[in-house]
Design a protein around this nucleic acid. Structure first.
Lengths: 223, 223
DNA sequence: AGGCTTACCTACTGATGAGTAAGACTACTT
DNA sequence: AAGTAGTCTTACTCATCAGTAGGTAAGCCT
């Protein structure tokens, strides 16, 4: 009479024993899902443990406090995103081509990993918490990457064009535009990653000035 | 000996009797400050009441629940922002000029009302709460305004250029870029509103394609 | 078999914070 | 002066969670 006698509950009352590494991954997966749809504060550790199919103390034993858990999520997902983008950007290429590839990789990633994306994006404006460091750090890496790209672009053309060499704010603006487009995408899921990437190129590479004149950007042309 | 004897506290122990309208404004002011620096969840009603120099039940009596209070903040500040921008955009003007003025008004507002701005921006990605409606609504208004501007721009030049007539996502991207720049501005407060507005025009009107070639945007030229 | 480690659990504590009950003070009416 | 309407307070209740104490069971060595 030790166990329950009503029996038959779909998830086994006592979870199967699994090695730590596996459980840690499961917990992180669950945490990403919960944090992404509730946000940091509204998410509860109880819900994370439910979704993970494990009891709460295990989370504390393996991943530490709520903040540490969240930081771990941020770090893992940020790394995945950065690798997805970094993987397609070849430094020897034409900057325009690099930008196109990077932007396309970004939207592809977001399309295939909504939760990963949202957990990074939804809490973006949070400061005052220790995990703000992780957030800011991830963002800084992204901005630095784009900023470097723009610097190379300026260099290749032999022009120090970018407003007194300040490409960093422009890179920040570009990421902001990307985030906003990704957000818009959530309400228009019928769009393809390519179409989204194209929009961002139109805005950021061509600018409204050109668009108004009927000149649009397309991936087919070279220069 | 009724009051505190350590004395010197700026807000009197028992608040002076004031008409409801005045108190409501004070409470809203305090709420905007607290929400802007803590975010919705981390903010507590006790802190709001402290900052407002009044006791908690007054807030509930006048402004309702925490959610209603927050919604009221959003609505008031969103309206102020929209009016600041709407006030300088003259529909008869050149679209480029309109965009410039609107963008400049935006950064001017943000520079002078950091709290108002942050309370709107920091919670932007929150969904699932009733006040998400207010947030989304405010954003929709802003995007619609810019989108209409772009449509007029396309119309004036006689071109249906904007990627199959979809100016709305581009407008969304532009607001995202503006938000990201405003964020960047917080870490570089030495910049002027004009310099910030110029950056956004460079990105959105000229595009990187032009910037790379040494063509930058400036408010002095006309076309 | 007995012992040891690691996975795993139920059932609590303690703090924080939203929201309220019940009444006190002030000022304006009549 | 006595009523009454509106301002303002102290001092609670009650729910929600983060985090933990203390213990059970499963595998793995000898």
């Amino acid at each position: 009479m030790t166990k329950k006698d009503v029996a038959g509950a779909t998830p086994p009352p006592r979870a199967k024993r699994l090695p730590r590494a596996v459980r840690e991954r499961q917990i992180l997966d669950a945490a990403v899902r919960v944090f992404s749809e509730r946000g940091y504060h509204a998410a509860s550790m109880d819900e994370v443990s439910d979704v993970a199919g494990i009891s709460k103390p295990m989370i504390y034993a393996y991943l530490g406090s709520k903040e540490e858990l969240f930081a771990a999520c941020i770090q893992r997902e940020a790394t995945r995103l950065m690798e997805a983008i970094g993987g397609v950007v070849d430094v020897d290429l034409d900057p325009e081509e690099q930008l196109w590839r990077g932007v396309l990789a970004f939207f592809t990633f977001v399309g295939e990993n909504r939760d990963s994306w949202q957990v990074l994006h939804r809490q973006a404006g949070t400061q005052g918490a220790p995990f703000a460091a992780e957030l800011a750090e991830g963002r800084r890496r992204a901005v630095a990457m784009i900023s470097a790209l723009l610097d190379r672009a300026a260099g290749r053309e032999g022009v120090g064009a970018f407003a007194e060499g300040r490409t960093e704010p422009l890179a920040a603006a570009l990421t902001g535009a990307g985030e906003a487009l990704a957000e818009w995408w959530l309400e228009h899921p019928e769009e393809s990653p390519k179409a989204m990437a194209r929009r961002l190129m139109n805005l950021s590479w061509m600018g409204f000035g050109n668009l108004v004149l009927g000149r649009a950007w397309s991936p087919e042309k070279s220069a």
